[in-house]
Amino acid sequence: MSDTNLSASGASTLRSARFRAEREGDWKRLEGLVRKVESSGVRSLSYHDARDLAATYRQTVSSLSVAREISLDRSLLDYLDNLSARAYLVVYAPQGSVRGLAAQLLLYGIPQTVRRCAMPLLIGFGAMLLGGLLGYALFEQDTSWYEFLHPGEMSGDRSPLATREQMLSSLYDPNVSFTDQLSAFASFLFSNNARVALMVFSLGVLCAVPNFVLTLYNGVLLGSFYAVFADKGLGYDVFGWLSIHGVTEISAICVACAGGAQLGLAVLMPGSLTRRDALRYRGRDATKLAILAVIMLVVAAVLEGFFRQLVQSAETRLLIGWGFGAFWVYWLFFTGHQAEEGA
């Protein structure tokens, strides 16, 4: 390159050209090191490389400072700007450790978050319980509420007009193939649970009101659904039918609602922070609740898609359903006390 000729043939009369000729070697060295780190990580640097990286980085940043002051050469400024930015990231924002992050999250992060979020969880589960009681009471008062709440289901097996035998067979149906189960699993997850959970979580940001209402509404549906069967003396059977996945699934929706409420509370009561900062701060817990909800929803979909058909007795259904319930409670409330939370 002509730059080398330039420095060889003696000093330029231009101050900025001399400035460049004197420091160019360092910049090139830094560029090479940055390139190396960008393609194969900090670990690829030798001891000497690492030492040079620190030294040439400082020199280049100081060159940048001087060049911004004296240089009229646009392309030189762009080069130094770019090189300094890349080197800055190599020096100050290096690769974090990836190992053990998932285990950390599952063992400590999520349980500790759940214990910390008593208030939002209370809102989530409270809304569902309140809705359930309301739905049950409404149906007891006037059965036509069911038509209002479940339009289009009036003629099916699960309406107040159906016979006891029809309803019973809708709860116990052993003749389902594996592929049916598979597609049932997928559609349960997407069409129903994921949609409700997504809406419940994301709407929370609007001051926690829509997600409360939506969860309440889901509770009402559930309560009235239960009431229809209870009316025919099938309360125990429908309880088992719902329990096998419902314990997990309904809890998941409550947890999603709690995550949404966490965001809503940040907007409603930001405390001494700005709303944006409060959202970001509480977002950490909300995210962990969302991850928990996703895990629970997947488990619930497996239970609903496969096991509800495989397991045909109410007792086993209750056992599996509440067994999972006990597992969630144990995991979330009785583990992960020891280590400090890092993830």
């Binding site: 003696g10 009369t13 231009l14 050209a17 090139k28 050469d73 030189l76 770019n82 890349r86």
Partner: peptide, 17 residues
């Protein structure tokens, strides 16, 4: 965006000689 910018040639060709 973090493009790799190359150091271009010095345009001011003045060695005073």
């Amino acid at each position: 965006a973090l493009p790799k910018t190359d150091l271009t040639k010095e345009l001011a060709q003045d060695d005073g000689v």
